[in-house]
Structures are given as C-alpha cells and as structure tokens.
C-alpha cells in the first residue's frame, strides 16, 4: 500500500499544475472578456466580394 504515498503525491502535483495554469491564464487576461471571442470566432476569414442584399 505504500504506493499510495507516491500516487497521492502525483495527484497533488497534477492538481497544482492546473492551478498554476489557471493563474497564468488569469494573468494573461484570458478571463477578462468572456463574450467577445465567442462572436469573433464566427467571422469568416475572407471577404466574399458579393454583398447583395
């Protein structure tokens, strides 16, 4: 059962990595604007040059 010590160490380490990743994302402002990117992704890359309505 001593393997448990190792496994728990691994799981805590993994969780810590995620926590650090979250902090990094916060610092980069990834959570500042949660609305705009969702709209931005829907835009076409190129301009189809017909705009007849």
């Amino acid at each position: 059962m001593n393997i448990l010590y190792f496994l728990i160490g691994c799981s805590v380490l993994l969780a810590l990595i995620f926590l650090i990743a979250f902090f990094w994302a916060m610092k980069n402002g990834q959570n500042d604007d949660t609305y705009t990117p969702g709209v931005r992704i829907l835009f076409d890359d190129d301009i189809p040059n017909e705009n007849n309505k």
Binding site: L19, M26, N31
Partner: peptide
C-alpha cells in the same frame, strides 16, 4: 476594479483547489 476582481478570483481558485483535495483526503 479589474485588479480587485482578479484578486478575488485567485483566492477562490486557491480555496477551491484546496477544498477539492481535502475532501478527497
């Protein structure tokens, strides 16, 4: 405003992280 908001979210993240692990243990 932004700075204090971020600070709070960091605290929530830490608390949530610890809460999850402690519950498991």
């Amino acid at each position: 405003n932004k700075a204090s908001d971020r600070d709070l979210i960091k605290k929530i993240a830490v608390a949530g992280f610890c809460f999850g692990n402690v519950m498991l243990l």
